[in-house]
């Protein structure tokens, strides 16, 4: 995380005049291979679908119509609001939100606990939390799948201890997807909160204590508002990737219920073969994420001023 830098460093002009030239490779690569493709995808979402995959270059609203309007199974009933896809998005948002809250509930105490250790002990704790963050997401998801399967180690253990008498059916449920999202992105929550807590000035807590505030009240009224930027950063780092997650619903949810990620994937790799619709769903997802980030940026600049 960016340390407290002397403000002057960024205004340094040692190589004045070279800015655009040095920036050029970034513009070229991200411009051509990300901005341009996303623009193209936006165009695709307005094209006519070709049967079984592909597009016809004729402009239409059909993909968005299909997303938002229900015209019945046969397409000739008077349009009403289509809840199918809104429902998929809503459930994805709900699951991502719940994963974020769960991560926060575990992540904040962890970050706090680590940040308040002796300075010499902190790196070791931090190291422990960082390792899973660096481990391949696919491998972590597969490990979770192995752990919670019907006759997997978790059930064996619980049966052995006698806590349960029948194996828990965890795999292929929404709960498993939820657990997977939580588990996947937990380290993303701890790290930014940690760097915020580390910079927290305990003089504030002392002042509060002098005014007879107990620790929990101080947490609520003093600490949380001060470390809020770290919390918000952590929440965004968990929420955004959870929203478009593919591996957790596919491997842990039994590919049974679509989330946004699998709905889009199905349009390009599965039977549906409706590219404009997939592009439209991706555009809607992108809009939601951009709206969240924009709100965040605006709140930040408001706080700064």
């Amino acid at each position: 995380m960016a340390g407290a830098a002397p403000q002057g460093a960024s205004r340094s002009e040692v190589y004045r005049g070279n800015g655009p030239r040095l920036m050029l490779p970034t513009w070229v690569f991200i411009g051509i291979f990300l901005v341009l493709p996303v623009g193209l995808m936006a165009i695709y979402s307005f094209l006519t679908k070709e049967f079984r995959g592909g597009v016809i270059w004729e402009f239409t609203w059909a993909a968005y119509d299909q997303f938002f309007l229900d015209r019945g199974l046969f397409g000739d009933e008077p349009p009403s609001i289509e809840w199918t896809y809104i429902g998929i998005f809503w459930r994805s948002i709900w699951q991502a939100g719940l994963a974020t809250v769960l991560c926060l509930l575990i992540g904040f105490p962890t970050a706090w606990f680590i940040a308040t250790r002796e300075a010499s002990a902190r790196p070791v704790w931090l190291f422990l939390v960082t390792i899973p963050y660096w481990v391949n997401l696919l491998i972590r998801t597969v490990s979770m799948k192995f752990l919670i399967r019907d006759n997997g180690p978790l059930n064996e253990f619980l049966l052995w201890t006698g806590v349960i008498s029948d194996p828990l059916s965890l795999i292929n449920t929404n709960f498993a997807v939820q657990l997977g999202l939580f588990y996947s992105y937990l380290p993303f929550m701890v790290l930014p909160i940690y760097s915020a807590v580390e910079r927290y000035d305990f003089a504030l807590s002392e002042a509060a204590a002098d005014l007879y505030s107990d620790n929990w009240t101080t947490l609520r009224l003093v600490i949380l508002p001060v470390v809020k930027p770290g919390i918000v950063a952590g929440c965004i780092l968990v929420f955004v990737p959870s929203l478009g997650a593919f591996l957790a619903p596919d491997l842990l949810g039994g590919a049974k219920t679509f989330m946004i990620g699998s709905l889009i994937e199905e349009q390009f790799k599965g039977a549906a073969g409706n590219w404009p619709f997939g592009a439209a769903a991706a555009m809607i997802l992108l809009s939601i994420v951009m709206a969240v980030l924009l709100l965040h940026a605006r709140a930040q600049s408001k706080e700064a001023s």
Binding site: W27, F33, L34, V38, L40, I264, W275, G278, A279, V289
Partner: peptide
Amino acid sequence: ASIALINLPLMVPEIVTAVASLIF
């Protein structure tokens, strides 16, 4: 704009990048 551009790949959800790249 350059700052925003560098961070763009972090902000666009992976599935969106994947689909956009494929289409491109």
